[in-house]
Design a protein around this nucleic acid. Structure first.
Lengths: 343, 343
DNA sequence: GTGAAAGCGCTAACAA
DNA sequence: TTGTTAGCGCTTTCAC
């Protein structure tokens, strides 16, 4: 059996409650006693039992992190592990532990959230994704359980604290970059339309196109969740249009990259024949050829901010709903090019 | 305050301990009582408090997962999130929760492990990496805390339960594939030599080369942890050798991919001028151009097996040290090509 | 400043 | 078959 507070108390010739006070660094304990107790702890190798703590106190010092049901992530894996690192980094600093649910299917996710909430497993929850409709969010809202969304809520925006980029603006910015380069026929390729991030990036693209009075074609907007078979066809169809795009705004680096390769197969090369942009600034985008012009969204920082917010929130339940916007930055590289003339 | 076992007991007109027995589905409780109690639980919306359970019982029903200190992972992010998913999938099935440490630096990792162990946070730990020398492993061994290594232990192999691929064989296999294609000048590019997996893959490569009586050059073996600046130079130097390789065994898909692009820059193209193989069969390798010939190591399954092993181990502490080898498979694609003649 | 005592919600002997 | 009774290790009034 592990060494307990009682053992320490005995060794230091104080009562268990005194030891507890020392742990909490209570101010009414004399420095002398503190020293004595701390020495005893060291010598005995004392470590508090977290379960007992959470049971007696009411805080678990743990936060739950929910990754999306895997069906929807597609290729975004490295995004999630990077946010997770951000969360973990701040959590560690603040002495919090991380409980994670890796998703699985939707039902499994929901079960794990319930388990965390009802079981008093965690003090709060961070959702690493935001969907157009999500029972988990509804559940968290109605139970008034502290949680943070990484991404923008689809509904209840004013009631939910969330950390996000301004994806609409970011998408607008990068579309404008393409427009500035002289492109007029610009397409958009996004992932699942269930994800709010896709919706936002699409919207930013559309705003930019509209503002510039560029022609719009319904066929210019495609959603390819995976780049195999089905996705490939959809994308290739874009280029059998009468007026194929000369530039493409794509909502994810990995997708951009897949599309670049796909197009190469049919003799369209980037950036000579087409300009392509990405999102996320993954490590990948630094080693592709061409180097990808993309939007850096500070993934790690997104996680850090979310954790910070959540911890504040668990400390003060009355903390109002906040919105944290992590700035984005366009990274100009080689996958975009000025359009000289329309061939 | 949440509803407790006592509330349920009152409502069902039984004692708290009876409720507890019902939860454990104890056989000595009459079916009638069980039904009554269960109904009461439903009606009241009862959910057991995990902390109280872990405190009273001795099992936390949680497993700790340690991701590597981030400095060493380089680009392997998607590997880790995939193993994590595997672990999570089985853990969920078995009713276990996941505690994760996301690494940070080495010291932070160690602290979190100690926290998990000493704080009775988890019943066992899964380490997602194996290094040549790791204080965490030493700690876990000496404290006799149940743990599983994903990867091969560098020392104490017989005392540690681990889940791994046969990386030596896998690397040998893929090297042989190159040899079969007629290549004689084959180089190796690996990641950090601190990682056992790198050591193993290098060894497999060397064995194959030796067995085939091919020429060996010290310069043919390079370790590039990152593909920017330093890494690029090292790799490019390979091709200023008198006798540059015609094929390359690379220890990670992302690296392979980076190298392919890097070489393209200096006019060497794959597979025409050089054959290149990868490891891991990431999603990425299906969308690169050329499609990557690589080794599928069943990442998800690695996680599943690790979780299964660990859970068995926590149930029976006397479980002997085991070794689980997850089979690998070479995925033949387009980045390798028969060598017709040496130019 | 320090300690006694109650109790957090649950499990697990042991009684009945 | 069910209930009684101790704790698990800790926090936290409230006395002293």
């Amino acid at each position: 059996m592990a060494v307990t507070i009682k053992d320490v108390a005995k060794k230091a010739n104080v009562s268990p409650s005194t030891v507890s006070h020392v742990i909490a660094d209570h101010s009414r304990i004399s420095l002398d006693t503190k020293k004595r107790v701390r020495r005893a702890m060291k010598e005995l190798g004392y470590h508090p039992n977290v379960n007992a703590r959470s049971l007696a106190g009411r805080s678990t010092q743990a936060i739950g992190v929910i990754m999306p049901p895997s069906s929807e992530t597609g290729f975004q894996n490295s995004f999630f592990s990077e946010v997770l690192r951000g969360v973990g980094s701040l959590a560690h600093e603040a002495g919090y532990s991380l409980y994670v649910s890796t998703g699985g299917d939707e039902q499994q996710s929901f079960e794990e959230v319930k388990r965390m909430v009802y079981g008093s497993h965690v003090d709060g929850i961070i959702l690493l994704y935001s969907r157009v409709s999500d029972p988990v969010v509804d559940f968290l809202v109605t139970t008034h359980f502290p949680f943070i969304l990484v991404g923008k809520p689809y509904i209840n925006e004013s009631k939910i604290t969330y950390v996000d980029n301004d994806n609409v603006a970011a998408s607008k910015d990068i579309t404008n970059h393409l427009i500035d380069l002289g492109h007029q026929y610009i397409g958009f390729i996004g992932g699942s339309t269930d994800l709010v991030v896709t919706v936002d990036r699409l919207q930013g693209y559309q705003q930019a196109i509209k503002l510039a009075n560029l022609p719009t074609f319904p066929d210019y907007i495609v959603h390819a969740e995976f780049l195999n078979s089905g996705g490939r066809k959809t994308v290739k169809r874009l280029f059998s249009l009468e007026m194929p795009p000369t530039a493409l705004v794509i909502a994810d680096d990995i997708m951009s990259f897949g599309v670049i390769n796909m197009l190469e197969e049919i003799g369209i090369s980037c950036p000579e024949d087409i300009s392509i942009t990405g999102f996320n600034n993954l490590y990948l985008s630094e080693i592709t050829r061409p180097l990808l012009t993309t939007v850096d969204i500070q993934i790690f920082n997104l996680g850090v901010q979310a954790a910070k917010c959540l911890i504040e929130k668990t400390k003060d339940k009355e903390e109002p709903a906040k919105r944290i916007i992590v700035p984005h930055e366009i990274i100009y590289r080689n996958s975009t090019k000025a359009l000289l003339k329309r061939v």
